[in-house]
Design a protein around this nucleic acid. Structure first.
Lengths: 209, 209, 209, 209
DNA sequence: TATGAATGAGCGTTCATTCAT
DNA sequence: AATGAATGAACGCTCATTCAT
């Protein structure tokens, strides 16, 4: 929950107590399940509350409105994802650049694949409401991390760090999303991931020469 | 309108007269504008009709329900897009492979950029309703065209045509989509396009060696 | 079309020409079929016109609105029915009273049974719109005919002609309607008709004694 | 609410609290009034809710759709009516048969007359939706009660119990309905009831002889 | 504090009716 | 005279949100 979160979407209270955290988790889980089962346009506050085992009233104590719920769900998801990426970037600090992109692709791909259902559910929910802020914040954060990582490469210096970074990030994230929407068989998906690494490495060779 | 279109989504009548075509176009245009302005969940039949300057009743003479409208809009768009890609693929038949991917990226990028608003509106609308059929059909069609093109490359033979093709298509389409969602400044977008070509060429060099 | 028909329900033009009569018949027939197939609340002007093979516009030249159509249909049906009853009453003039009621029951039952589907369709349609006038007029007309018939009985004089007549008519018409709504098997229906005659005869014996 | 009620028509929740019962009663009452004032085709959910002094939403908490409302109204009415008839049949067990039919006519007539407006409203509403199940169930229930009663007559044994029973029930119910649709003046209605008893008695004498 | 009954604006859709052609 | 595209009020129904208990 950074300072940029629009106030209308801010959770009403932070889950300080253990009980509150359990409740919020149940609500999030219920939301994901319903998103998956029925799609975003069938997601209703009543159903979420019911499945989460709380009353609507209680739900409105944690989230001021429906959009805030979806917003918070995505926020939490992107927070975890950003942390994973930042962690990878830190771990790869000073490594050879080829290894860096491989690690980046792996991290991102694995994160998305771990709970593929959640990934798909959230991709669908983001478009629904206006969660652009969230996406932009995530992009900025990832950008900072990957830029710092690439700048520290032990084996090369990039002429145009900004452009190369933007390219890599856009290509990797875009490709992964597209791969998800095609619902490829596991073998093909795995092969694709390998090809993506190959491609990124080849690209870096080309712009580094 | 291919035979696979679910019957519930089939337009009720085709616009035979000039006047009818104008009406249908106005409805499509209104839909795009509303999709852009308010997002898919604010798209209502009343608002579409109002903005198109027709009555709801008239709208329902052309589309049996709201979903059919969005479906038809995407269908029309993807039809044009598929034709452009097929045309490019035919034109590049027998060309050197590097030139092929450059042409493919250019065609796709230009098509998406020509009316960026439409592109963005439709990206948002696809997730909403069940337009998976549409997307799958489009993918299959494009796949056939690009596979045939790549197979005819004058300067090389690909070891694993299928895999390479899938990779290229997924990367290009995914990257373009992601680039659009970031709403980059024109210069950066242009640079990105160049980098994408570089990357694809480098990849082909790598897998062809 | 007697003078009591509310003006809003009056057909716009009488079918003078042969062609017009054919059209009106087609419209009536279409109405009956739709009434049977889908029930009164699915009866729409568009569907009637379509099934009758004319345009809605043409239909509105014969009937100023939907209610007028249903009204006219019932009117025509009741007209024919009233004529049959009047004819029977005239034929039974001066006959023994027991034979009179038997003839009355037979005529009414046969008329309703001839096209049982139409009977049922119309029973359902009458309740829908306000066709009370029609029903009242029919009742008055039948009343006059049966009263005259009963008064002429060769074998008896009724003490309270009015009351006996009302009783017979109400019982016969009510019983037939109820029998229709129960959709009895043919044999049971036939038996019931016989019992009804027996009952009416027994009643007349009782009030004549 | 017997097990045969189609699930789509089942009330959503039973009125447990006193307040809820008041609400449901108000909705029923409003439905009756509107049915009487405007007829079934003018009965709209909005108008019912408005007249009942509740919101549409509240109405939909008790009834899943409009048809279910009309269904429940008829169900409640027929339930009470069936109980009255069964009660009469039990009370007349072993009595002389003439007294039996008199009691049956009296009970039925009084029940219908008590709230003539309700009677008329429901007669009009039954045809509208598919309440045939309801009517059939009612018929079967009444049939069992009257058959048992007639079989126990102290002064006679019927040759064809089934046929006689069907005749009596069809005649009585049909006559009452028809009498209601004619909206007779009180005196005439009362006389008619007497005549109906006379007729039934005479019929029984005839088939018993 | 937690509940869930109540609200009512607003949705997608239908269809009787009109009128330009 | 005949057509049928266009109209838009009105329908049945949903669901985010509130608030008395």
């Amino acid at each position: 929950m950074d300072a940029r979160t629009p106030s209308a979407l801010k959770p009403r209270k932070r889950p300080r107590q253990a009980r509150a955290r359990v409740t919020v988790d149940a609500i999030f889980e219920a939301t994901i399940q319903l998103l998956l089962k029925d799609g975003p346009h069938r997601l209703t506050t009543t159903r979420v509350a019911e499945r989460a085992g709380v009353s609507v009233g209680t739900m409105y104590q944690y989230f001021p409105n429906k959009q805030a719920l979806v917003y918070a769900l995505n926020e939490r998801y992107l927070e975890v994802l950003a942390e994973k990426i930042e962690s990878t970037c830190r771990a790869q600090h000073g490594a050879p650049i080829g290894q860096m992109v491989e690690a980046l692709v792996d991290t991102y791909w694995r994160a998305k694949t771990e709970r593929a259902d959640v990934t798909r559910a959230l991709y669908r929910s983001v478009a629904e409401m206006d969660n652009q802020t969230l996406v932009d914040d995530f992009a900025a954060r990832v950008n900072a991390a990957t830029t710092a990582m690439l700048a520290s490469a032990s084996d090369t210096t990039l002429d145009d760090l900004e452009a190369t970074n933007l390219t890599l990030v856009t290509v990797i994230f875009g490709t992964v999303r597209n791969a998800f929407e095609r619902t490829l068989p596991a073998a093909q998906a795995e092969a694709l991931r390998g090809q993506l690494v190959t491609m990124c490495r080849a690209y870096l060779d080309a712009v580094t020469a």
